[in-house]
Design a protein around this nucleic acid. Structure first.
Lengths: 107, 107
DNA sequence: TTCTTATATCGTAATATTGCAATGTAGCAA
DNA sequence: TTGCTACATTGCAATATTACGATATAAGAA
């Protein structure tokens, strides 16, 4: 055990869970927020911005990239990352699907 | 190590990360979707619905509850859980804050 | 009281995640 | 060439998560 039983769930559910999981870490939220604040892409100003070591930040960037939440382009010696709006819309659509008009009777 | 360095991030960021983390598991997405589909609250029909053992489901419910994403009320022998729309709105607001009007220049 | 039903909790094995030092690599400047 | 800058990768220790069998607990039925 220790392994998530992904095989028993639909692909749609697993995809959503991976997206949420990628955002389920404060460093990665901070990265996303910084990316958003810059409007344009950035590289490892993050190393100066966040109180984490460079390998740790690189690892978090990799996970966000694997999840498809950010995209990166090489530009000379540095790497330029930015948000992928499509994935954010996917999450948004899921959250929207959870909304009720009325509150249920029990809670 | 192995521990997330929460102390170095703002409370707002940590809270968001905890919410996303709670949704970062397929079983918990499935639970949320089932809750939504029922409109009204349910108990452990989840045990019949999901291919997971009862203690496992109970544990996932606990985590969703800890995160504040679901709420529960005792009603006789069974427990009635339902979604907490406020938390969903929090996540929604964060995602909305990530949107650009224009695509950045690099990606 | 005893039984059943619905749930929570404990304990534990398997595995995943986090964080970082050390090290690698690739581009550019001198 | 040497050296620097901006990353990525490797390896490892500490810790967290996942899943579940076994075992509680609490309410209601018989």
């Amino acid at each position: 055990m220790g392994t998530t039983k992904s095989a028993v769930f639909s692909e749609e559910i697993n995809d959503l869970a991976l997206l949420f999981k990628a955002l389920g870490h404060p460093a990665r939220i901070a990265i996303i927020q910084f990316l958003r604040a810059q409007e344009t892409c950035i590289c490892n100003d993050l190393v100066n911005e966040l109180p984490l070591a460079q390998p740790t930040i690189s690892q978090h960037l990799k996970e966000l990239k694997n999840a498809g939440i950010i995209q990166g382009n090489v530009s000379g010696t540095s790497l330029c990352y930015c948000l992928n709006q499509d994935k954010i819309k996917e999450l948004d659509a899921f959250l929207a699907s959870l909304k009720y008009d009325q509150s249920p009777t029990c809670c």
